[in-house]
Amino acid sequence: MNLGESIQWISEDTIELCLGEPVAQETLICVEKISQWIHVTRPEWLIDYCYGFGVFSLVVRPERIETTTLIAELSDILSDQASEIALGDSQVIEIPVCYAPEFGLDLQSISEATNVSVDAIIDLHCGRDYRVLATGFVPGFAYLGETDHAIHLPRRDTPRTRIPAGSVAIAENQTVVYPRETPGGWHIIGRMPGSIVSLSKDAINAKLQMGRLVRFKSISMDEFLTIEAADDPG
C-alpha cells in the first residue's frame, strides 16, 4: 500500500494517517491492524496513539525514527494480507439499558421530532447491533453506529451542562453511553446500570473496545436497581 498523500506530520512529534471512510469495514480493519501491531511490537519510538473516524494519529520520538522508515513500516502493516484480521464479530457486547422516563429524558421530544412512538424508538435502538466506530473524547466514551434512519436527529441546539453517568444517548447516526457526568448535546434515551469503564493503577478497562459489536437490551427499573446495587463497590 502506498500511503502517499494520506500521511502528514501535524506537529514536531505527531504524524497523522487518513485511513478512509469512517464507517467502512475496511477502515476498521486497518485500525485493528495498526492497533494489534502496536500491542504486539510495542515500538520504542512510539509515545502514544489515537484513532477517530478515519484518522489514526501516532505520537513518536522523532529522534528515534526516520519519516521514511515510519511510512514504510505502516505501509507494510496495512498491506499485510497474510494476517487477515477479523473484528471478533462472534462476541457481541451486551449493554442493559433502562428506558424508563426518569432516565430517558429526551424520549418524548425525540418522538415528537421524528414521529416515531416512544416504544418504537426503544425497539429500534435495541433492534440491531452497533459497531464501535471510535473511542476517546473522555475515558470510556465510545461512538457506536449506525442507528436506524428513522431516529436520526441533529444534536440538541443547547447542550446540557450535566448529563448523568451511564446515560445512553443518540444523535445523528450514532449512539453513545456517557461514562461519567459531563456536559453533552446528545439526546438522552435511557441509562445503563453499573459503570462502563474502570481504572487500575496501570490500566483503563473500558467495556467498549474499538471495532467490536454492541447490542442494547431493554431492562426494567427493578432489574436496573438490582444490577446497580451489585455493581456498587461501596
Binding site: S35, D48, Y51, V59, F137, V138, P139, F141, M210
Partner: peptide
C-alpha cells in the same frame, strides 16, 4: 500521561 490517548485520557 502517555499511552492512553486512544482510551480518551
Amino acid at each position: 500521561r502517555y499511552g492512553f490517548a486512544s482510551q480518551g485520557v
